[in-house]
Amino acid sequence: MNRQRVYIQATTQISIQSPLNENWMQNPIQYERPFIRSIEPNFRDFISPIEARRIGRLQKRALTTSLTVIHQSKVEHPDAIITGTGLGCIENTELFLKDMCSQGEYLLKPTPFIQSTHNTISSLIAIYTQTHNYNVTYSHRNISFECALYDAMLQFRLQKINSALVGSHDELTPSWYELLKKVGYSGNPSAEASVSFMLTTERNNSWCELGGIKILHQPSIEILKLSLGKLLTDNGLNLSDIDAVITGINGNQATDLPTIQIYKQLFGQIPLLHYKHLFGDSYSASGLGLYSAACCLKYQFVPSTLYYMETEDQIDNPQNIMFFGQSDYKDYSLILLKSSCGK
Protein backbone atom coordinates (compact mmCIF):
# COMPACT_ATOMS: atom_id res chain seq x y z
CA MET A 1 0.00 0.00 0.00
CA ASN A 2 1.32 3.43 -0.93
CA ARG A 3 2.05 5.66 2.04
CA GLN A 4 -0.10 8.75 2.28
CA ARG A 5 2.24 11.67 1.66
CA VAL A 6 1.81 14.67 3.91
CA TYR A 7 2.78 18.25 3.14
CA ILE A 8 3.03 21.45 5.15
CA GLN A 9 0.69 23.65 3.16
CA ALA A 10 1.13 26.70 5.39
CA THR A 11 2.79 27.64 8.66
CA THR A 12 3.25 30.79 10.71
CA GLN A 13 4.29 31.92 14.17
CA ILE A 14 3.82 34.45 16.93
CA SER A 15 6.94 34.49 19.04
CA ILE A 16 9.67 36.87 20.13
CA GLN A 17 10.49 37.48 16.47
CA SER A 18 8.39 39.61 14.11
CA PRO A 19 4.95 37.95 14.12
CA LEU A 20 3.19 36.25 11.21
CA ASN A 21 6.10 36.62 8.78
CA GLU A 22 9.60 35.34 8.04
CA ASN A 23 11.46 38.61 8.64
CA TRP A 24 13.63 36.78 11.19
CA MET A 25 15.42 35.04 8.30
CA GLN A 26 16.94 38.35 7.14
CA ASN A 27 16.59 40.59 10.18
CA PRO A 28 16.44 38.60 13.39
CA ILE A 29 15.67 40.51 16.57
CA GLN A 30 18.38 40.03 19.20
CA TYR A 31 17.69 40.07 22.92
CA GLU A 32 19.92 40.48 25.95
CA ARG A 33 17.40 39.63 28.65
CA PRO A 34 16.50 36.14 29.87
CA PHE A 35 12.67 36.34 29.96
CA ILE A 36 10.83 37.65 26.92
CA ARG A 37 7.16 37.68 26.07
CA SER A 38 5.84 37.38 22.52
CA ILE A 39 5.58 40.25 20.08
CA GLU A 40 1.88 40.37 19.34
CA PRO A 41 0.26 41.46 16.09
CA ASN A 42 -2.85 43.62 16.06
CA PHE A 43 -5.38 41.01 17.12
CA ARG A 44 -8.24 43.23 16.00
CA ASP A 45 -7.31 42.39 12.43
CA PHE A 46 -8.43 38.85 13.23
CA ILE A 47 -10.81 38.92 16.20
CA SER A 48 -13.43 41.56 17.02
CA PRO A 49 -13.05 43.29 20.43
CA ILE A 50 -16.37 41.84 21.65
CA GLU A 51 -15.22 38.31 20.75
CA ALA A 52 -11.73 38.92 22.10
CA ARG A 53 -12.78 40.08 25.54
CA ARG A 54 -13.25 36.55 26.86
CA ILE A 55 -10.20 35.11 25.11
CA GLY A 56 -6.84 34.98 26.88
CA ARG A 57 -3.58 36.13 25.30
CA LEU A 58 -2.38 32.63 24.44
CA GLN A 59 -5.72 31.79 22.87
CA LYS A 60 -5.60 34.98 20.81
CA ARG A 61 -2.16 34.03 19.54
CA ALA A 62 -3.22 30.46 18.78
CA LEU A 63 -6.38 31.62 17.04
CA THR A 64 -4.49 34.22 15.01
CA THR A 65 -1.80 31.79 13.78
CA SER A 66 -4.53 29.24 13.05
CA LEU A 67 -6.69 31.70 11.10
CA THR A 68 -3.60 32.79 9.16
CA VAL A 69 -2.70 29.28 7.99
CA ILE A 70 -6.37 28.54 7.29
CA HIS A 71 -6.47 31.63 5.09
CA GLN A 72 -3.14 30.85 3.38
CA SER A 73 -3.95 27.21 2.71
CA LYS A 74 -7.61 27.86 1.82
CA VAL A 75 -8.54 24.87 4.01
CA GLU A 76 -11.47 26.39 5.89
CA HIS A 77 -12.47 23.31 7.87
CA PRO A 78 -9.54 20.93 8.49
CA ASP A 79 -10.37 17.29 9.18
CA ALA A 80 -8.48 17.51 12.46
CA ILE A 81 -7.42 20.18 14.93
CA ILE A 82 -4.58 18.86 17.08
CA THR A 83 -2.77 20.99 19.63
CA GLY A 84 0.37 20.48 21.66
CA THR A 85 0.80 22.61 24.77
CA GLY A 86 3.00 22.06 27.79
CA LEU A 87 1.33 24.47 30.19
CA GLY A 88 -1.97 25.22 28.50
CA CYS A 89 -3.58 28.51 29.48
CA ILE A 90 -1.31 28.98 32.50
CA GLU A 91 -2.01 32.72 32.81
CA ASN A 92 -5.69 32.11 33.45
CA THR A 93 -4.94 29.10 35.61
CA GLU A 94 -2.85 31.37 37.82
CA LEU A 95 -5.62 34.00 37.94
CA PHE A 96 -8.12 31.35 38.94
CA LEU A 97 -5.86 29.86 41.61
CA LYS A 98 -4.97 33.29 43.02
CA ASP A 99 -8.70 34.08 43.25
CA MET A 100 -9.26 30.79 45.04
CA CYS A 101 -6.62 31.70 47.61
CA SER A 102 -7.59 35.33 48.10
CA GLN A 103 -11.34 34.65 48.17
CA GLY A 104 -11.12 31.56 50.34
CA GLU A 105 -12.44 29.34 47.53
CA TYR A 106 -15.69 31.27 47.64
CA LEU A 107 -16.06 34.09 45.11
CA LEU A 108 -14.60 32.84 41.86
CA LYS A 109 -14.84 34.65 38.53
CA PRO A 110 -16.12 32.36 35.77
CA THR A 111 -13.99 33.66 32.89
CA PRO A 112 -10.51 32.63 34.15
CA PHE A 113 -11.96 29.23 35.08
CA ILE A 114 -13.39 28.74 31.59
CA GLN A 115 -10.05 29.69 30.06
CA SER A 116 -7.85 27.73 32.42
CA THR A 117 -7.92 24.28 30.84
CA HIS A 118 -5.36 22.95 28.39
CA ASN A 119 -7.91 21.99 25.73
CA THR A 120 -9.44 25.48 25.66
CA ILE A 121 -7.06 26.32 22.81
CA SER A 122 -8.12 23.58 20.42
CA SER A 123 -11.78 23.92 21.29
CA LEU A 124 -11.75 27.68 20.78
CA ILE A 125 -10.27 27.24 17.29
CA ALA A 126 -12.97 24.67 16.51
CA ILE A 127 -15.79 26.89 17.77
CA TYR A 128 -14.46 29.98 16.04
CA THR A 129 -13.99 28.25 12.69
CA GLN A 130 -17.11 26.06 13.01
CA THR A 131 -14.95 22.98 12.52
CA HIS A 132 -16.60 20.08 14.32
CA ASN A 133 -14.14 17.32 13.49
CA TYR A 134 -11.40 15.39 15.31
CA ASN A 135 -10.15 17.66 18.10
CA VAL A 136 -7.40 16.59 20.46
CA THR A 137 -4.92 18.27 22.80
CA TYR A 138 -1.60 16.78 23.91
CA SER A 139 0.13 18.02 27.03
CA HIS A 140 3.42 16.22 27.57
CA ARG A 141 5.86 18.94 28.55
CA ASN A 142 8.59 19.38 25.93
CA ILE A 143 7.25 16.79 23.50
CA SER A 144 3.65 18.04 23.46
CA PHE A 145 4.01 19.30 19.90
CA GLU A 146 5.72 16.12 18.72
CA CYS A 147 2.83 14.07 20.15
CA ALA A 148 0.32 16.27 18.32
CA LEU A 149 2.25 15.93 15.09
CA TYR A 150 2.60 12.17 15.56
CA ASP A 151 -1.16 11.84 16.01
CA ALA A 152 -1.74 13.84 12.83
CA MET A 153 0.66 11.61 10.90
CA LEU A 154 -1.11 8.48 12.15
CA GLN A 155 -4.48 9.89 11.08
CA PHE A 156 -3.05 10.63 7.63
CA ARG A 157 -1.41 7.20 7.35
CA LEU A 158 -4.71 5.54 8.29
CA GLN A 159 -6.31 7.69 5.59
CA LYS A 160 -8.81 9.05 8.08
CA ILE A 161 -8.02 12.65 7.26
CA ASN A 162 -6.81 14.75 4.34
CA SER A 163 -6.00 17.89 6.31
CA ALA A 164 -4.95 18.75 9.84
CA LEU A 165 -4.36 21.98 11.70
CA VAL A 166 -1.53 21.20 14.12
CA GLY A 167 -0.47 23.79 16.66
CA SER A 168 2.21 24.30 19.27
CA HIS A 169 1.21 26.93 21.81
CA ASP A 170 2.63 28.00 25.16
CA GLU A 171 2.80 31.14 27.24
CA LEU A 172 5.24 32.07 29.98
CA THR A 173 4.19 34.04 33.04
CA PRO A 174 6.54 35.90 35.42
CA SER A 175 5.65 33.51 38.26
CA TRP A 176 6.39 30.45 36.12
CA TYR A 177 9.71 31.99 35.13
CA GLU A 178 10.53 32.51 38.82
CA LEU A 179 9.83 28.81 39.42
CA LEU A 180 12.10 27.87 36.52
CA LYS A 181 14.89 29.94 38.05
CA LYS A 182 14.39 28.31 41.46
CA VAL A 183 14.88 24.83 40.04
CA GLY A 184 18.00 25.97 38.22
CA TYR A 185 16.59 25.87 34.73
CA SER A 186 18.72 27.80 32.31
CA GLY A 187 17.19 27.88 28.86
CA ASN A 188 18.29 31.23 27.60
CA PRO A 189 16.18 33.13 26.75
CA SER A 190 12.91 31.79 28.13
CA ALA A 191 10.07 32.86 25.91
CA GLU A 192 6.65 32.08 24.47
CA ALA A 193 5.67 30.27 21.30
CA SER A 194 2.63 29.94 19.13
CA VAL A 195 3.06 28.07 15.85
CA SER A 196 0.43 26.66 13.52
CA PHE A 197 0.85 24.23 10.66
CA MET A 198 -1.72 23.28 8.07
CA LEU A 199 -0.92 19.77 6.89
CA THR A 200 -2.58 18.37 3.79
CA THR A 201 -2.10 15.65 1.20
CA GLU A 202 -1.80 18.31 -1.50
CA ARG A 203 1.71 18.88 -2.79
CA ASN A 204 1.00 21.93 -4.97
CA ASN A 205 2.03 25.22 -3.34
CA SER A 206 3.23 23.42 -0.22
CA TRP A 207 6.17 24.61 1.87
CA CYS A 208 7.69 21.13 2.16
CA GLU A 209 6.88 17.47 2.77
CA LEU A 210 6.65 15.95 6.22
CA GLY A 211 8.57 12.71 5.72
CA GLY A 212 7.92 11.18 9.12
CA ILE A 213 8.32 11.47 12.85
CA LYS A 214 9.76 9.26 15.58
CA ILE A 215 9.36 9.81 19.31
CA LEU A 216 11.53 7.72 21.61
CA HIS A 217 11.55 7.42 25.38
CA GLN A 218 14.91 6.69 27.00
CA PRO A 219 16.41 5.06 23.91
CA SER A 220 19.93 3.70 23.72
CA ILE A 221 22.16 5.19 21.03
CA GLU A 222 21.65 1.97 19.05
CA ILE A 223 17.87 2.37 19.14
CA LEU A 224 18.23 6.02 18.08
CA LYS A 225 20.41 4.94 15.15
CA LEU A 226 17.91 2.24 14.16
CA SER A 227 15.02 4.69 14.29
CA LEU A 228 16.94 7.23 12.26
CA GLY A 229 17.80 4.54 9.70
CA LYS A 230 14.16 3.44 9.48
CA LEU A 231 12.97 7.02 9.01
CA LEU A 232 15.46 7.54 6.20
CA THR A 233 14.74 4.18 4.53
CA ASP A 234 10.99 4.81 4.62
CA ASN A 235 11.67 7.95 2.63
CA GLY A 236 14.17 6.40 0.23
CA LEU A 237 17.03 8.43 1.68
CA ASN A 238 20.51 7.85 3.00
CA LEU A 239 22.16 9.77 5.83
CA SER A 240 24.25 11.63 3.24
CA ASP A 241 21.03 13.04 1.75
CA ILE A 242 20.38 15.06 4.90
CA ASP A 243 21.55 18.64 4.34
CA ALA A 244 21.25 19.82 7.93
CA VAL A 245 20.14 18.82 11.41
CA ILE A 246 18.26 21.35 13.52
CA THR A 247 18.34 20.91 17.28
CA GLY A 248 16.99 22.57 20.39
CA ILE A 249 20.33 23.65 21.83
CA ASN A 250 19.40 26.40 24.27
CA GLY A 251 22.66 27.95 25.46
CA ASN A 252 22.89 25.85 28.60
CA GLN A 253 26.30 24.18 28.33
CA ALA A 254 25.37 21.47 30.82
CA THR A 255 22.70 20.12 28.48
CA ASP A 256 24.00 21.33 25.14
CA LEU A 257 27.28 19.41 25.22
CA PRO A 258 25.72 15.95 25.74
CA THR A 259 23.16 16.76 23.04
CA ILE A 260 25.94 17.65 20.62
CA GLN A 261 27.74 14.40 21.49
CA ILE A 262 24.64 12.38 20.58
CA TYR A 263 24.15 14.46 17.45
CA LYS A 264 27.73 13.64 16.38
CA GLN A 265 27.17 9.93 16.96
CA LEU A 266 23.98 10.00 14.92
CA PHE A 267 24.75 12.46 12.18
CA GLY A 268 28.55 12.75 11.99
CA GLN A 269 29.57 15.85 10.04
CA ILE A 270 26.14 16.97 8.83
CA PRO A 271 25.84 20.73 9.50
CA LEU A 272 24.17 21.58 12.79
CA LEU A 273 21.54 24.30 13.03
CA HIS A 274 19.96 25.84 16.11
CA TYR A 275 16.98 28.14 16.64
CA LYS A 276 16.36 28.75 20.35
CA HIS A 277 18.83 31.65 20.45
CA LEU A 278 16.37 33.41 18.10
CA PHE A 279 13.02 32.17 19.36
CA GLY A 280 13.77 31.37 22.98
CA ASP A 281 12.92 28.24 24.91
CA SER A 282 9.53 27.00 26.01
CA TYR A 283 7.54 23.78 26.10
CA SER A 284 6.40 24.61 22.57
CA ALA A 285 9.81 25.56 21.20
CA SER A 286 10.07 22.41 19.06
CA GLY A 287 7.20 23.78 16.96
CA LEU A 288 9.40 26.77 16.16
CA GLY A 289 12.28 24.43 15.33
CA LEU A 290 10.18 22.64 12.74
CA TYR A 291 8.84 25.96 11.49
CA SER A 292 12.43 27.22 11.02
CA ALA A 293 13.33 24.11 9.02
CA ALA A 294 10.19 24.49 6.89
CA CYS A 295 11.16 28.11 6.14
CA CYS A 296 14.62 26.99 4.98
CA LEU A 297 13.07 24.46 2.60
CA LYS A 298 10.44 26.86 1.30
CA TYR A 299 12.85 29.71 0.62
CA GLN A 300 15.66 27.32 -0.33
CA PHE A 301 18.29 28.91 1.84
CA VAL A 302 19.57 28.62 5.38
CA PRO A 303 20.03 31.99 7.13
CA SER A 304 23.52 32.42 8.55
CA THR A 305 22.07 32.99 12.02
CA LEU A 306 20.87 29.37 12.17
CA TYR A 307 24.34 27.81 11.79
CA TYR A 308 25.66 26.62 15.13
CA MET A 309 29.28 26.79 13.95
CA GLU A 310 30.30 29.94 12.14
CA THR A 311 32.75 27.92 10.08
CA GLU A 312 29.98 25.75 8.65
CA ASP A 313 29.80 25.66 4.84
CA GLN A 314 26.82 27.45 3.34
CA ILE A 315 24.01 25.03 2.44
CA ASP A 316 22.64 25.82 -1.00
CA ASN A 317 19.13 24.72 -1.99
CA PRO A 318 18.49 22.45 1.00
CA GLN A 319 16.45 19.36 0.15
CA ASN A 320 16.19 17.44 3.43
CA ILE A 321 16.39 18.73 6.98
CA MET A 322 16.12 16.58 10.11
CA PHE A 323 14.74 17.99 13.35
CA PHE A 324 16.42 16.34 16.33
CA GLY A 325 14.91 17.08 19.72
CA GLN A 326 15.81 15.89 23.17
CA SER A 327 14.27 16.60 26.54
CA ASP A 328 15.98 15.80 29.85
CA TYR A 329 17.83 12.94 28.10
CA LYS A 330 14.62 10.94 28.29
CA ASP A 331 12.48 11.93 25.35
CA TYR A 332 13.95 12.18 21.88
CA SER A 333 12.31 13.09 18.61
CA LEU A 334 13.29 12.89 14.97
CA ILE A 335 11.22 14.71 12.34
CA LEU A 336 12.14 14.61 8.68
CA LEU A 337 11.25 17.48 6.36
CA LYS A 338 11.78 17.17 2.61
CA SER A 339 11.68 19.87 -0.01
CA SER A 340 8.56 19.71 -2.16
CA CYS A 341 9.97 21.93 -4.87
CA GLY A 342 12.28 20.73 -7.58
CA LYS A 343 13.46 17.15 -7.15
Binding site: I50, L107, T111, I114
Partner: peptide, 17 residues
Protein backbone atom coordinates in the same frame (compact mmCIF):
# COMPACT_ATOMS: atom_id res chain seq x y z
CA UNK B 1 -22.76 45.69 24.76
CA UNK B 2 -23.63 42.16 23.69
CA UNK B 3 -23.47 40.75 27.22
CA UNK B 4 -24.41 37.14 27.89
CA UNK B 5 -25.06 34.74 30.78
CA UNK B 6 -21.38 34.47 31.75
CA UNK B 7 -21.28 38.26 32.04
CA UNK B 8 -24.28 38.02 34.36
CA UNK B 9 -22.23 35.68 36.55
CA UNK B 10 -19.32 38.12 36.50
CA UNK B 11 -21.66 40.92 37.59
CA UNK B 12 -23.03 38.79 40.43
CA UNK B 13 -19.44 38.21 41.63
CA UNK B 14 -18.73 41.96 41.28
CA UNK B 15 -21.78 42.85 43.40
CA UNK B 16 -20.81 40.49 46.18
CA UNK B 17 -17.08 41.15 46.13
Amino acid sequence: LGLDSIDALELIVLMEK
